[in-house]
Design a binder for these strands. Structure first.
Lengths: 272, 272
DNA sequence: TTGTACGCGTTATCAT
DNA sequence: ATGATAACGCGTACAA
């Protein structure tokens, strides 16, 4: 059988409620009792039961994360960022792939609602849940929701600065890091010789490159697929994760946060 | 307030227990009643409560996944593989980074035990939990445990075949896909001209390559950082995930699986 | 085939 | 400062 709070209470010769209070760090409890209870806890090797706690407190210390496709290279870094922050607060994450399929997404959603997750991260461009549950949207701002996003404008202007009058060419693969950045890039006729070529979600093919050309690769922390000589445009997946986590925590803890948009900056760095 | 089973029971004019049985698909229940109950369920928008269910059944339909570092490029694909299989069985995953720190890992472990996860995936080279709980180890076989691993031997022999008498050179980055493969590579004196160079966790630097040389890059599905002209040694992270998931499910469902080692094959493919 | 009643391990509300 | 006890929502042996 499992060691429960009652067992601890019996061993410490106090009431269940007292044990619960000690565990939750209730201030108004005599040091002597606290001592006794902790002794019993360690003695018996008691481990609190999160499920029972959840049933009683109707919180699960768990958040659901919707990703269109978990296997995307940056997904891991995003999850790592989330986990880093949330785990420090006793909150676990449950990632779910929605695959762009509404039915599948609906199933995932109701499954997580059944689990009574305390909140959602929506990183799949899908609609927010109808239910009134704390959620953070990652991506383009949507009305009345908490949103975190990557500052495409900043990336665009950094590229423009690097270009300095040259043409900027955008090559995007099937899974670009900066979707939508095309619209922000300068498209006026180049005044100088040469080209800045941004490969977003692609590796550049070997082509003759003139000395006036500059190659920029999108990359994340752990996907260092940047060939020597190329510039790197950093897509801050990890930071996006830590930021989302902090925002969601605030909402869950009801810190009176108003719906807001927070964004995180990409960084452009030169070849080594 | 929340819609509970009692509400459904009242609406359908049956007992709570009957509703529970209908939900669990109990065979011995009259079609008429089933009909009524489902009607009430939809009518009221009832959603079963996984926490209450867990308390009562002492299962959580949840598994913990230990990764040393979630942000590694292949981690996402592994998780995606896990999720793909497990979600179809109503099981959710809770990934945790252990960061190679024993203390941190211990905390994660006891947190997940508190949550009453139904099983563990250990992909961080750490020790198996002392508790007797279904677990699958990913990596080198350990005594008496269920293990899934990547067949390094197969990768080595495929490389040897490709080399066909030439030298095989191994370049590994800080996060190689094939740790340990070095020991398996042929190291006899090359009989032919040229070299097979395997870049494992690295991008090759631009160097003069003789026509007799062959470049091989380790890659996963979604990390296609393979320059044109290079061979690709596929590290089957996704498949590792689906395999781990199936094995763990079998163990959890007590299908009498004996401790075993299953491995998944890397594939070597030529340039496009 | 369906209903009754108890147990699961905590938290929270009253009392004291 | 601490004890008693009622929820919390569901599964299930047992009864009918």
């Amino acid at each position: 059988m499992r060691v429960t709070m009652s067992d601890v209470a019996r061993a410490a010769q106090v009431n269940k409620a007292t044990v619960s209070r000690v565990l939750r760090g209730d201030a108004r409890i005599s040091p002597a009792t606290v001592e006794k209870v902790w002794a019993a806890i360690k003695e018996l090797g008691y481990r609190p039961d999160a499920i029972a706690r959840g049933l009683s407190s109707s919180r699960s210390d768990t958040v659901g994360v919707f990703l269109e496709d978990i296997s995307l290279p940056w997904a891991a870094e995003y999850l790592a960022g989330l986990e880093r922050v949330l785990s420090r607060h006793g909150v676990d994450i449950i990632p779910r792939a929605t695959g762009g399929d509404p039915q599948q997404r609906y199933n995932a959603l109701s499954g997580l609602l059944s689990r009574r997750v305390d909140g959602f991260i929506l990183f799949d461009n899908g609609p927010a849940p109808e239910a009134d549950i704390p959620s953070v949207i990652v991506g383009p701002k949507r009305e009345g929701g908490h949103t975190v996003s990557v500052d495409l404008g900043s990336a665009a202007s950094q590229l423009a600065r690097l270009a300095d009058g040259r043409a900027v060419e955008l090559h995007q693969g099937e899974n670009p890091f900066f979707p939508g950045i095309g619209a922000l890039l300068p498209d006026d006729a180049p005044k100088k010789k040469g080209t800045v070529r941004l490969f977003d979600g692609l590796l550049p093919q070997e082509e003759g490159t003139s000395p006036d050309d500059t190659v920029v690769i999108s990359a994340t922390r752990r996907c260092p697929a940047v060939p020597p000589g190329a510039w790197k445009l950093y897509w801050p997946a990890f930071e996006l994760g830590t930021l989302s986590a902090r925002l969601l925590l605030n909402i869950i803890q009801g810190k009176g946060v108003r719906p807001q948009v927070v964004s995180v900056l990409p960084a452009l760095t030169g070849p080594l």
